[in-house]
Amino acid sequence: MKYRLYVSGFCNNTRNLQSSMGIGGVILNDRGEEKVFSEMIGKGTIMEAHCYAILHGINEILNDKTAKFINVYSTNLLIIDYLNKKNVKLPMKAEALLEKILEILDTAKISIKYEYFEVNDYVYVRNLAEEAIKV
């Protein structure tokens, strides 16, 4: 089974290192089925929120034992560049989360592709992350 995962993270104060974080995402499979998630996940940075959104979506997909491929779309270009093995520097906590994602996928033996998408291209995903904080 092939999946597309669209994710975004949101913080209510991006200048604060301990702000409320919300994540949102849409998971689509090649049968056209859709699963949506929106969740407040605690305190942290906007970078961490994006990482948690990817981690949450991938964990949801891995519940399907027939998953063979995931195309991850994130609104955070720095994270996408890191996951695509470009030489970028991330905060330590965000880097640790992304390394955990890479380890999980390596263990699961699933092909994956990471792509950036403009939040304006899929505003619904950003709204899911924002709504998680408001609940």
Rank of each mutant, 00 (worst) to 15 (best):
I27T: 05
N127G: 02
K109R: 13
L77S: 09
S8R: 02
D106G: 13
G57I: 02
L98Q: 03
E99L: 15
K86M: 05
E118F: 08
S20G: 02
N29Y: 01
I41G: 12
K113L: 14
G22L: 01
G24R: 03
K100E: 14
I101N: 12
I70N: 06
C11F: 11
K2G: 07
L98T: 06
L102D: 11
I46W: 05
K2F: 12
G42L: 02
V26T: 00
A108V: 11
G24C: 02
N13D: 12
L62Q: 07
K85R: 12
E103G: 12
S8C: 10
E34A: 07
I23M: 06
V119A: 08
I101F: 14
K35M: 06
C51Q: 08
Y3D: 02
F10G: 03
S38M: 02
A49G: 03
E95K: 14
E48A: 13
I101V: 15
N16E: 03
L98A: 09
E60S: 01
N127M: 00
D121Q: 13
V7N: 04
G25C: 15
D106K: 14
I61V: 12
E130Y: 01
I46D: 11
N16K: 09
V26H: 00
D121L: 08
E60C: 14
G24K: 02
C11Q: 08
L90Y: 09
G22P: 07
I58K: 03
I101R: 13
N127A: 01
K109C: 13
